[in-house]
Structures are given as C-alpha cells and as structure tokens.
Simulated assay, not measured.
Amino acid sequence: MDQILSLVQIAVLAVWLMLPAYFPNPIAAVFGGGKPIDNGKLFFDGRRILGDGKSYRGLLAGITSGLLVGLIQISLASREITILNIDLPSFGPDTVSAILVIFCLSAGSLLGDMVMSFFKRRMNLKRGAPLPLIDQLDFVFGAWILTYLVFPQWFIATFSFNIIIAILIISPILHVTINIIGYIIGVKKEPW
C-alpha cells in the first residue's frame, strides 16, 4: 500500500510541476488563429516554416494561460497546502524567480511544439499529421530545455529521476486524452 501511495505522490508532484507547461498548447489551440508566426513565409526547401497552426494569438494565449495557472500554484504553495501529505513545491526561491520559472515552462512548451512543427514540415507532414510519441512529448522537452537553460539549479533540484519518468508516462496519456476531448468538442480537426 505504501508503494502505491508513493507512486501516487510522485504522479501528483509530476503533474503539479508540469501544469504551467500542460495548459499552453490546448489553450493555444482553442484561442489561436489569426496571423501565423511564420507570416506565411517559406523555408529554403519551399515548405512553410511552421504553418498556419502556430499563430501569434495562440502563442500569447498559451503563455498567458500557463502564467495564470502558475500564479495560482504560487499562491497555493505559499499557503503551504498539501495534497496526499505532499508539500507542494514552489517554483523558485522568491516570487520573481518563480514567475520566471513558470514563464520558461509555459513558453518552452510552446517552443518545443513549434520546433517539432518545423521538423514535421521538413518531413513533408501536413498540419495535424500524427507523429506518435513525438507529438505527445515535444512540449515537455521544450519546457524542460528552456527551464534548464535559464534555471539549471532549480531544475536539477526539482526534477528528480522519478519525477521525470512519471512525466514521461503521464504526459502522453494526458495529451491524447485532451486531444480526443478537443476533437469531440470541435476545437481540433484530428483526435491526436
């Protein structure tokens, strides 16, 4: 029973730490549209740089959502709220650092998705074409890389091996579930 509780606690911590990275992509899909980030330009290979699916409005909405979620988390962590006897960790030693960490997680998740979109265009995959597992983790790696580059000490101290493994297992499941819901309600054109 203790092992199950321990696994649940690790999963809760993993989701808690990734919430600022989990929100931006679905919110960008819901509120995106408008002027594309690549301004319709082609790369030297004759294909779009990113495509119409990556817009300024989606980028702004996504980062804003991650920041709002993170600000709620900062407030909860400062009140020393626990879930399943877990002290919810803060996102930095002070409020400014915590907000910057949350920004890195949010922006990094969208950057990771954009980088993969760039490579999908190079592979001649159309917008929305599936790339299993990569589609479900590109935003995770983007969030991790940007956060690590800006806040390496916090990242190393916070993302233990067990937390990383939990995120790598949980994220694809959440991603597919959210995409199916988005497809059912008409926000996404494909269920992956």
Rank of each mutant, 00 (worst) to 15 (best):
28 A>C: 11
29 A>M: 14
29 A>W: 03
29 A>S: 11
31 F>R: 03
31 F>T: 04
34 G>V: 08
34 G>N: 05
34 G>H: 05
34 G>D: 04
34 G>L: 04
35 K>E: 14
35 K>I: 13
35 K>R: 15
36 P>S: 15
37 I>Y: 02
39 N>I: 04
39 N>P: 00
41 K>A: 12
44 F>C: 08
44 F>S: 15
44 F>D: 13
47 R>F: 04
48 R>M: 07
51 G>R: 10
51 G>P: 09
51 G>F: 11
52 D>Q: 12
52 D>C: 01
53 G>M: 03
53 G>T: 04
53 G>D: 05
54 K>M: 15
54 K>E: 09
56 Y>Q: 06
57 R>V: 01
58 G>Y: 05
58 G>F: 04
59 L>V: 06
59 L>W: 12
60 L>A: 11
60 L>M: 13
62 G>D: 11
65 S>D: 10
67 L>H: 07
67 L>T: 07
69 V>Q: 03
70 G>R: 06
71 L>M: 14
72 I>W: 11
72 I>Q: 02
73 Q>G: 05
73 Q>H: 09
75 S>V: 08
77 A>E: 09
77 A>D: 07
79 R>W: 07
80 E>D: 11
80 E>R: 15
80 E>S: 12
80 E>Q: 13
83 I>W: 06
83 I>L: 13
83 I>E: 04
84 L>F: 14
87 D>L: 13
87 D>E: 13
88 L>F: 10
90 S>N: 14
90 S>H: 15
91 F>H: 03
92 G>R: 05
92 G>Q: 07
97 S>F: 07
97 S>Q: 12
99 I>E: 02
100 L>T: 08
102 I>P: 09
102 I>W: 10
104 C>F: 02
107 A>S: 13
107 A>H: 04
108 G>H: 04
110 L>D: 05
110 L>G: 06
110 L>I: 15
111 L>K: 01
113 D>Q: 07
114 M>I: 12
114 M>K: 02
115 V>L: 15
116 M>I: 09
117 S>W: 05
118 F>T: 06
118 F>K: 10
119 F>I: 10
119 F>W: 12
119 F>R: 09
123 M>H: 07
123 M>L: 15
124 N>E: 14
124 N>W: 08
124 N>K: 13
124 N>G: 10
125 L>Y: 14
126 K>G: 04
127 R>F: 03
129 A>Y: 08
131 L>A: 11
132 P>I: 13
134 I>M: 12
135 D>L: 08
137 L>F: 06
137 L>I: 12
141 F>S: 10
141 F>H: 07
143 A>M: 03
144 W>Y: 14
145 I>D: 01
145 I>K: 02
147 T>N: 09
147 T>C: 15
149 L>E: 01
151 F>A: 00
151 F>Y: 12
153 Q>V: 14
154 W>K: 02
154 W>S: 03
155 F>C: 01
156 I>C: 02
160 S>Y: 01
161 F>C: 04
165 I>S: 02
165 I>F: 09
165 I>Y: 01
165 I>K: 02
166 A>V: 05
167 I>R: 01
168 L>W: 09
171 S>T: 15
172 P>G: 08
172 P>I: 06
173 I>R: 08
174 L>K: 02
174 L>M: 14
176 V>W: 12
176 V>F: 14
